[in-house]
């Protein structure tokens, strides 16, 4: 079987809010000083789901795909170090400024060109824009089913059995292959590559495809093909006027808080 894991390099979401800045003229996030970009955590968990199936005894090849400039190669390297077999970097100036429509077009074209892909694993959302539509978009474009927000993924013959996280519990669904799965943090921690695996990953093949390789018309992707236009990016202001409840003892603090809540009629 052939699985594809989609991986995205993003600004570290653990960046403290105090170091998070945006340029409101260009509507871009200003990279925080000294904080390196990382593989989106949900994508690492998606890779973990695919690797667990490979280790469960299935004869599986895993290709990790990333759309981005050369910097995206770091995301590919990390998933290769986790245990994926091959890397694929989708890089072309025409891809710059793609919205989700463009991103899905490019990824879907790459999956079609790879051929014989049985399942695509994506994070439930990328932890930068938090949009959560790329996985379903790929499924729709390829005419496949998608099982979203998975906490467990298993193979049952030629079907995928996925336990999904819903607001009121866990739902188990079965879909035929090929299929898309988007994976959530409930699956568990992704593995941390050992040094030997990182060394090994450096020797694995990473192919690079351009718009021409994929047969994509440059005007249909990138900023030119975008359906969504980012009009404004800003940091919302939070109150910042906290009233610290004082008191000599925790009992006094608690009583003073209760008095304040009573005055505000929430108690």
């Amino acid at each position: 079987m052939h699985f594809v894991v989609c991986a995205k390099q993003i600004p570290d979401p653990e960046t403290p809010p105090s170091a998070f800045r945006v340029n409101e003229q260009t509507n871009e996030v200003i990279p925080a000083q000294g904080i390196a970009p990382v593989l989106s955590q949900f994508d690492a968990i998606a890779a973990e789901a695919a690797l667990r199936l490979k280790e469960a005894g299935s004869d599986v090849k895993i290709t990790v795909v990333s759309l981005g400039k050369e910097s995206a190669a770091a995301a590919i390297k990390q998933v290769l170090a986790m245990g994926a077999d091959e890397g694929l970097l989708l890089d072309d100036d025409a891809f710059q400024g793609s919205d989700w429509n463009g991103t899905v077009k490019i990824l879907s074209a790459a999956i079609q060109k790879l051929g014989n892909v049985d399942a695509v694993f994506c994070g439930r959302q990328a932890a930068d824009w938090d949009m959560g539509q790329t996985g379903v978009g790929i499924a729709e474009t390829l005419g496949w089913p998608a099982s979203i927000i998975a906490k467990d993924v298993k193979l049952d013959g030629d079907k995928l059995v996925v336990q999904r996280v819903l607001p009121d519990g866990f739902q188990t669904v079965k879909t035929p292959l090929p299929s898309v799965v988007t994976v959530s943090n409930e699956l568990g921690e992704p593995r941390y590559p050992k040094l030997a695996q990182i060394m090994q990953a450096a020797k694995k093949t990473v192919t690079k495809w351009s718009a021409a390789d994929l047969g994509i018309d440059a005007s249909s992707v990138g900023a030119a093909g975008a359906r969504l236009k980012l009009e404004r990016l800003f940091i919302p202001q939070s109150g910042g006027n906290v009233i610290i409840i004082e008191g000599e003892t925790p009992q006094e603090q608690a009583q003073n808080l209760v008095k304040a809540l009573q005055a505000d009629k929430v108690l």
Binding site: P11, P13, T15, P17, F20, V22, N27, V29, A127, D128, W129, D130, M131, A226, R227, L228, K229, L230, E231, R232, L233, F234, I235, P236
Partner: peptide, 20 residues
């Protein structure tokens, strides 16, 4: 039509318009 949504883990908000 404009849509406003939180992004970057709630650190920022983005306002989008649509071309289609």
């Amino acid at each position: 039509f404009k849509a406003t949504r939180p992004c970057y883990g709630g650190n920022a908000q983005a306002v989008y318009s649509f071309t289609t």
